[in-house]
Amino acid sequence: MTAFRISAEPIDPAALARSLVHARAGACATFEGLVRDHNDGRAVQRLDYQAYAPLAQSEGERIIDEAREKFAIVEACCVHRAGALAIGDLAVWVGVSAAHRGAAFDACRYIIDEVKKRVPIWKNEHYADGESGWLHPDNTPVV
């Protein structure tokens, strides 16, 4: 399994976590990013993720490689959804196994932070008032 994937299908966190199991790994840290029902004071009903898939794939893999270089980890994996998602859906999942918890937490945090900063994926929020809008990394609207 590739360490980074864009998925049009729902994410199965239990299956992904099993892929991180290793006899050398005494720690496993995971992060789940979920679709929430509000942003910047507005009620959100659903959202769409668009991705430039080939570049998202290569940039995502680069981030996982960087995490392997920076932290003493055993396995790492990240899956990001594309397409239409509802409130409560799992939008992104990151999992890292390591001998010890410090590296697992640090690498997990590094991967999600860099994915949000660098991977060409865009979130379009659909609001309760019928409007929609593409967002910036800091969650302010794109004018």
Binding site: H80, K116, P120, I121, K123, P137, V142
Partner: peptide, 10 residues
């Protein structure tokens, strides 16, 4: 060629 607007994944 692709012009990449500010990204907002996660």
């Amino acid at each position: 060629v692709v012009f990449i607007p500010p990204v907002s994944g996660g």
